[in-house]
Simulated assay, not measured.
Amino acid sequence: MAGTSPDINEDRIAEEAAGWVARLQSSDATERDRRDFLAWMNLSPANRAAYDELKGLWSELKDVPLEPKAKKAGLSRRTAIGNVIAIGFIALLATLAYQMGFVDRLRADHYTSVGQVSRFTLEDGTWVDLNTDSAIAVRYSAAERRIELLRGEAFFDVAKNPNRPFVVEDGTLSATALGTRFAVRVASGTLPGDVQVEEGRVEVAHLGERVILGAGDVARVTSKGSLSVSRTDVPNETAWRDGKLVFSGQPLKEVLATLGRYRHGQIVILDEAAANRKVSGIFDLADTDQALAVLEQNLPVTITHLTGMMVLVSSR
């Protein structure tokens, strides 16, 4: 398993703090939200410090004067520009909070930050491996064990209990375990959503269509909206559980899309020739910069780090 670095911890705390700032300013914040927030604050001084810093920024922006329409004509140019910047920044903060997973993490019972992989056990003995930037909500009842995959990817080693079906849903697919080990991934960017079975059987449902998957099968929703079943190497596809990423003859664009899930910022491919280069290899998901360096050494491509948040890839 990949360890959690201090940088990842700081990122996680900052993301959680920003999520709490946004949530507690919402009109639909509940008493449970406030209790959970206080519990989170009391976990560590770092949580409190991060929250205080972001709350201060929020307050500064919120207090920028926004004049009613009747007074707009009298606003100075500087005040008007300041108002626009403040409104835009707050809107951007809200959008980023959603896109970066703050909302999903507030809804989740378990989650990971970018670059983090986590393993834990649910109350029934089921083992869960949660991939980078992923979140699940646990909805157990006496009749069934239901997991909502809010974002990212999870691998389940399901504890057998025929009287309480184990169901994972991601908003598109529903996967019911029939005594098994399997992974579910939410579609994101160029990466498709899917269900992969390592052991046992899984029933996958989508819009009334149902298929039974066996070991080595993968199910995806096609562009036409139907279920497609094919074969795959599940241990390689889910090697992230052991801190590795395994590729076998895959286009560079797919490799970079996967690497991008484990780092902050964007990786941009500038030409089609580079995008379609085939890649085979095993990489350490905890060091994506090293993975990029290896790709540059072994492929006719140039990799340029513009900033810590932007990487350009082009043919050479």
Rank of each mutant, 00 (worst) to 15 (best):
M1E: 02
T4W: 05
S5C: 05
P6G: 08
I13T: 14
E15N: 14
E16S: 08
A18M: 11
W20M: 02
R23P: 13
L24A: 09
L24G: 12
Q25V: 11
R34C: 05
R35W: 09
F37I: 13
A39Q: 09
W40K: 15
S44D: 14
R48H: 15
R48Y: 15
A50F: 10
D52L: 15
L54K: 10
K55G: 13
S59M: 07
L61T: 11
D63I: 12
P65S: 03
E67H: 14
P68R: 03
A73R: 14
S76L: 11
R77S: 15
T79W: 13
A80C: 12
V84E: 15
I85M: 06
A86P: 07
I87V: 14
I87K: 08
F89L: 15
I90S: 04
L92A: 11
A97L: 09
A97N: 14
A97C: 12
Y98L: 09
M100Y: 14
D104L: 11
S113R: 07
V117L: 04
R119I: 02
L122S: 01
T126I: 04
L130C: 02
D133R: 10
A135D: 05
A135L: 04
A137L: 01
L149S: 06
L150A: 07
G152P: 01
F155M: 11
F156W: 00
D157T: 10
P162M: 10
A175W: 04
A177L: 03
L178F: 10
R181P: 01
A183P: 04
A183L: 04
V184R: 02
S188L: 10
S188R: 13
G189W: 03
D194L: 11
V195W: 04
V197M: 08
E199D: 06
G200N: 11
R201T: 03
H206L: 09
R210A: 15
I212K: 07
I212F: 05
L213M: 12
A215Y: 09
G216F: 11
G216Q: 07
G216I: 10
T222M: 14
T222Q: 15
K224A: 14
K224H: 14
R231L: 05
T232A: 12
D233R: 05
P235W: 00
N236F: 02
A239I: 04
K244V: 06
K244D: 04
S248E: 01
L252N: 00
L252D: 00
V255K: 07
A257M: 13
G260K: 09
R261D: 08
I269C: 04
I269P: 10
L270A: 07
D271F: 09
E272L: 15
A275M: 10
A275N: 10
S280P: 08
G281K: 13
F283D: 00
F283Q: 00
D284A: 10
L292G: 00
L295T: 02
L295W: 00
E296R: 08
N298H: 08
P300G: 01
P300R: 03
V301R: 00
T302M: 01
H305G: 01
S314F: 05
R316S: 03
R316Q: 06
